[in-house]
Amino acid sequence: MPDDLIRFTLNGRRIAVPSTRGHLGDLLRHELGETGTHIGCEHGVCGACNVVMDGRVTRSCLTLAVQVDGAEIETIEHAGNDRCGAALQDAFVARNAFQCGYCTPGMIMTARELLSENAAPGRAEIRDAISGNLCRCTGYQAIVEAISDAAEALRETADD
């Protein structure tokens, strides 16, 4: 960062912002206006702030803004642009798999990573995969069913 700018790709757009000491979550929300990423605990437990950094789901509250220099970042605002993200969003609505919606962006980012690695996860595998994402409203069951439904929908349309 010779010119004291953080340069990275956000949801396919090239970004250059003045260096800041804050974390990635604050940078996305307060500097770049992408408020879909939520801050729940700022100590890496709740998963509401999950984003994808260079292909891996990452806690944006535990990632310093300067760490993303040169990285590719994807947030919930962009997740619906691929089949998997869109299928998950459809299934979350259909199954009423969210209530207040605060955990949902992080939950969907995690679920999308699961489905990219495992096209047919069982219920226990789904429950295990989302155990780093806290939801305080649902009983988790609708979320498990939504992810399972999305996986099935994706398998059915895989060859389309």
Binding site: G36, E77, F92, V93, G101, T104, P105
Partner: peptide, 13 residues
């Protein structure tokens, strides 16, 4: 389903 709440699943809360 709560279609009106879809925006929450898309990060538009």
């Amino acid at each position: 389903p709560r279609e009106g709440a879809r925006r929450l699943a898309e990060g538009r809360g």
